[in-house]
Design a protein around this nucleic acid. Sequence first.
DNA 1: AACATTATTATTCATTTGTATAACAAGGGT
DNA 2: ACCCTTGTTATACAAATGAATAATAATGTT
Lengths: 214, 214
Amino acid sequence: MSAQRKPFRREGEDTRRRELVEATLACIATLGMERTTVREIAIKAGVTAGLIRHYFVSKEELVLAAYAHYVATMAKQSRETVAGISPEPLTRLATFVKTNLSAPVVDQTNLSLWASFIETVRTNPAMAAIHLEGYRGYRTDAEMLIKAAFKTAKRISAPNELRRLGIALNAVIDGLWLEGSMSPGEFVEGELAQIGLRSASALLGLDLQKADLK
Amino acid sequence: MSAQRKPFRREGEDTRRRELVEATLACIATLGMERTTVREIAIKAGVTAGLIRHYFVSKEELVLAAYAHYVATMAKQSRETVAGISPEPLTRLATFVKTNLSAPVVDQTNLSLWASFIETVRTNPAMAAIHLEGYRGYRTDAEMLIKAAFKTAKRISAPNELRRLGIALNAVIDGLWLEGSMSPGEFVEGELAQIGLRSASALLGLDLQKADLK
DNA sequence: AACATTATTATTCATTTGTATAACAAGGGT
DNA sequence: ACCCTTGTTATACAAATGAATAATAATGTT
């Protein structure tokens, strides 16, 4: 009547680490940071709890790796979407705005994940470093897009001005993303993206709505 | 050699409840939700852990009360600031923007507190209700201010338009608040508020910077 | 096919946490 | 001055948690 020992397969180190990291993100997103325990992560990953310590010296280190993975994935997706379309600057800018204001970026679970990390970011210097790098990259992307669009429109763009507009554009997107992710029922399909395009147009003095139709 | 029993004072119910609620907020802000335990809260409040259960049937209920207190306090402060100044609509709008983009609203600890609640808001219906009420009130405030400013400028404002602008204005403020609170070192004193005024001006087609100087 | 390595499972341990209960004393009523 | 209510402290407890250690079996090597 002895319970059988669980059968298993040996995986390569990188595979297992990625599996564990992804299971961690899934757990945090679903259960929240508080209820994300090593046992829960292990269940999600389909392994036993002990294995976690074989790859990560502590739960804290695993969470750190998960955050790094999350930031990197987000940045990569955003860049690939913009890079994969028409090189026309205005269209790119419009796509940048729209992508970040539609599913799957706008998503309650995604927001939860992001929020769960915030408090850790504040208290953990290693997490803070990862965050700052990601944020700066994101803002630089926005500035580059604006710069290119201005150039096409033959508009002068001083570095100061560019910085200010990058911050502002980023803020509208973040704010709308926040509202949309937090209160999904408050907006109809596509409304958020439309408001984003209009707002960005007003902020930058460009017509992104026309560009979006191309 | 027996340890002395801790001396204490009896407090009225509402006083104690408020003390416990405030201690809870302080704990969450400082330590994060995960490390906010009933014992830690009790220490912060200067009482022993057992007392908490005398006023709140569970830790969850205490956290809920703390969130309600937090939302109410924020809303009250915002309204009082705007109400306490010149009745000139443009100036009010400018103040609304500036207040929400300066200390003490823009603050890393404040952000932490807010973020800590997010995941709870998602999973707990009671928390979600409190949140939605607060958010709608905030947006309504913004819409009213915009409407008044438009009226002064003799501009027509359709309900749809008003809703859209309210959401957008709210988003810029939220986004800038987020960026400023998360990466305090990235902005110089007053920069955030300036960007906020400029952005709001562009969004609404009003000159809030001039209005701010009055 | 036997072996060695080590990834993985299984078990154990010390702490922590939320909650429950018991003991005590502060302050009001008479 | 005494008692009585109950706010408050102190102790206890079962469950959960991160981590440590022991046991086992999957896979590559020869």
